[in-house]
Design a protein around this nucleic acid. Structure first.
Lengths: 246, 246
DNA sequence: CGGCCCCGAACTGGATACGGTTTCCCCCGT
DNA sequence: ACGGGGGAAACCGTATCCAGTTCGGGGCCG
């Protein structure tokens, strides 16, 4: 089973084989970012190991790294996606409000042409997804957009920290995007960011990023309030009473 | 050699045995924070495992966790403390400038009485160390002071992120504290912070924390410049003597 | 005598098998 | 129907082995 190198030396330059633990970590993180792994799935080291044709050691190291980064929560019965409480989400948004405007300013200043192209492509995807009402595609476009501008941030530590915290509220974000009005606001925000980035206007980019994060937080709070008022939790993962097993 | 459990069930209530990997991780991190492990020490998993009377797996997991948190760097020949380049340090200071003023404001608002007492004790230690010229004690007091006010920050994620980045420049900090003038500035800054904290003045605490971080960065830059100008690096770990390969 | 190359030691990454312990869940008995 | 016990699940840790990589030193050759 040593012949399972699926996509080595592809054209992208990504997908570095690196090491087994790295591959498992990256793949699991990708699936977590896309909310392909829900709070009902239990991740067990032996199963992960078997799925990747590896042994327990790299699987467990990947899982524990995800735990330390906040993507997963270890329990006595397998690893699960943590159900973020209201205060958890507010904590994360507080940090994002502090970091992302500055990072956007840096990205606007240092934006390269390829990054600008990626940004435009992501915006186009988002627009298409919005007009089609495709929530999944909008989430992917959102991730691509963020990935593109974060890639232009020279401060790698800053970019990694932002990506980590933004990923953790991804599930919440997905819930807010179920609302069509929120989708419109998001795409409009992306467009305004895109415009500032392409103009290399660091000041405006910082302002609009602050606005964008604030809107994301407001959308979450509105959803939270609606769930508390109306009987229906309506997809909010913040405080589900029972098991809305989809 | 299995009888080296240093401080289990001590009076503090901390030092939960938890698990072996946790114990190894915490102990190594403590030693790294205090710069007891220098860039010349090579950490080898088998040696660590033997030292703690454990096997390789918990030792390696602790080491790799330290790697992914930035405390260590993995190489083909043991784990070593990373030699931070100038840009690395600047990256970290940029993040600290963004986070710490806000965190100080939160801490000032929510400071509890025990935390205030710990803060005062740390300041007293720092003053004693400064008048005695004891660099090591000043470093420890510095850590205690930071730990005290970070403990008052309700946003645990924010506090943990700050602690992580501040730890990473600890070795650099130690180098700057070799200068007596810098020591005076640091203790004066701590005193001003302490005063704002005790007054629960969030605004002033934020301002003074911004100032404090800026002074720390300036001290580092001054040392860097002096090392570049004068022939002798003089203890600066940022630019090692021979092979500045990066 | 000096430079170059090769080999082996050291270390990481990974695999495999095994034992111990805690905890949850289901089933059984009352 | 409800509570307690047993077993399985899953974590944590140990021991041992193998493969690949890299670095340094010693031997060989010019």
């Amino acid at each position: 089973m040593r012949a399972l190198s699926p996509e080595i030396e592809a054209e992208g330059g990504i997908s570095r084989p690196e090491s087994l633990r790295e591959r498992i970590y990256l793949d699991l993180r990708r699936r977590l970012q896309r909310s392909e792994i829900g709070p009902d799935d239990r991740l067990v080291d032996t199963e992960i190991a078997a799925a990747y044709g590896a042994s327990r050691m790299p699987a467990r190291e990947a899982l524990m790294r995800l735990v330390h980064e906040g993507y997963l929560k270890g329990s006595t019965r397998g690893f699960v996606v943590p159900a973020l409480s209201l205060s958890d989400v507010l904590e994360i948004f507080e940090i994002r409000r502090l970091l992302e405007p500055r990072a956007a300013a840096l990205a606007a200043r240092d934006l390269t042409e390829p990054a600008a192209a990626a940004l435009s492509a992501a915006l186009a995807e988002a627009r298409a997804a919005e007009s089609g009402g495709d929530v999944e595609a909008l989430i992917l476009a959102n991730i691509a957009f963020r990935s593109a501008w974060l890639g232009a941030v020279r401060n790698a530590r800053l970019a990694a920290t932002i990506a980590r915290f933004a990923d953790q509220v991804q599930a919440v974000r997905l819930a807010t995007l179920r609302d069509a009005a929120t989708r419109r606001v998001v795409v409009a925000g992306l467009a305004r960011l895109h415009e500032a980035f392409l103009r290399r206007d660091a000041v405006t980019a910082a302002d609009r990023m602050a606005e964008f994060v604030a809107q994301a937080e407001a959308a979450f709070l509105a959803l939270q309030e609606a769930a508390a008022a109306g009987g229906r939790p309506a997809g909010a993962r913040g405080s589900p009473g029972r098991s809305p097993r989809a």
